[in-house]
Simulated scan of single mutants.
Amino acid sequence: MAGPHLVADPDVIQIGSGSPLVLAHGAGGSVTANFGQVIEALSSTRTLVGMNYPGSGGAPEDVGALELGVLADSLVGAAVDAGFERFPILGLSLGTAVAVTAAARHPDRVSGLLLTVGFARADQQLRLVVDTWTALAASGDRHALAGYLVSLSSPAVLGSLDAAAADAAVTTTQDNYPDGGVDQARLAASIDTYDACRELAVPAVVFVAGQDRIVLPESTRRLAAAIPGASMIEYPYAGHIFTPEEASVWIDDISEFLGTHEL
């Protein structure tokens, strides 16, 4: 796979060739962290365009820019600057709210939505996760914070780890934790896009993780119900972050949706 190509802005990644797919990452993630397997699988047939939010992927922190409208407009602008007039958006977690907002604000640009482990309104599980995340971040104990984030993995993932593997996962999470993660998480906890969802008129699919311990699966189902005509695909044993095997199935479903709707 070729290295990322920076377009117009050092926080924007463009890679691959062909029809576009725009990527909106989750809180505490980045384009490459959340979509690395997607990029590897699809860059031979599609152009992937993504934007790191402030505080992720080397983008400088800017709390004032962490607003849904600003992120949505910036993401659309990045895709337009990359040479595309219309494009589908693949969003993950917080990125689903960014994608919905982009589609509502730019209906002439966004041609479809693929929304993964998302929500139209923050639920109590997410709010409690963000409260704990915030407290641990404020304590300065990055190791404890990383341990907490790893503990939110699916039961199947946690059950597969021995002590050494769990320690390694915590260390990796700590080493890759973005400076802006907690501010992005606070934004996620404030989300309410129900009104925007009801106005959408583009093909949409919503991917539900049945063992999600960050966003309640029922909240993701409600997101699908709020979007006129949206379809829904469930992964009963997946958590908020997919394993490589789960991501392979997800990528196949992404490709099928894009092909069916000629996006």
Rank of each mutant, 00 (worst) to 15 (best):
M1R: 11
A2Q: 14
G3Q: 14
G3Y: 13
P4V: 12
P4C: 11
H5W: 10
A8G: 12
D9Y: 12
D11T: 15
Q14D: 09
I15E: 02
I15P: 00
S17K: 14
G18R: 03
G18D: 06
S19C: 05
P20Y: 00
L21N: 01
L23V: 09
L23S: 02
L23I: 11
G26S: 14
A27M: 08
G29K: 02
T32A: 13
A33F: 10
N34C: 13
Q37F: 07
I39A: 03
S43I: 00
R46C: 00
T47N: 02
T47I: 03
N52I: 08
P54F: 07
G55M: 07
G58W: 13
G58R: 13
A59L: 09
A59K: 03
E61I: 11
D62K: 11
V63H: 13
V63Q: 14
L68S: 04
S74R: 15
G77D: 07
A78S: 15
D81M: 10
D81A: 15
G83E: 12
F84N: 05
F87W: 05
G91H: 03
L92F: 14
L94S: 03
L94I: 08
T96H: 05
A97W: 00
A99V: 07
V100I: 15
A102W: 02
A102R: 01
A102T: 07
H106T: 10
V110N: 02
S111N: 08
S111W: 02
L113V: 06
L113Q: 01
T116R: 07
T116Y: 09
G118K: 01
V130W: 03
D131F: 08
T132K: 12
W133Y: 15
T134I: 08
T134P: 04
L136T: 08
G140F: 12
G147P: 08
V150K: 01
V150M: 08
S151I: 12
S153N: 14
P155G: 11
A156S: 15
L161V: 11
D167K: 12
D167S: 14
A168H: 09
A168L: 10
A169W: 04
T173R: 10
T173E: 10
Q174F: 06
Q174P: 03
D175P: 02
D175I: 09
Y177R: 08
L187D: 01
A189N: 10
D192T: 13
T193H: 05
D195W: 08
C197Y: 00
C197P: 01
L200M: 10
A201V: 01
V202S: 07
V202R: 03
P203M: 09
A204L: 08
V205Y: 00
F207A: 05
V208R: 00
D212A: 10
V215I: 15
V215P: 00
S219A: 15
T220H: 05
R222K: 13
L223F: 07
A226F: 03
P228W: 06
S231L: 11
S231N: 11
M232H: 07
M232V: 15
I233H: 10
E234A: 14
Y235V: 02
I241K: 01
P244Y: 08
E245W: 09
A247L: 05
A247F: 04
S248H: 07
V249L: 09
V249N: 00
W250Q: 03
I254Q: 00
S255M: 04
E256V: 07
F257R: 02
F257Y: 07
L258Y: 01
G259V: 05
G259P: 01
G259Y: 04
E262R: 15
E262I: 09
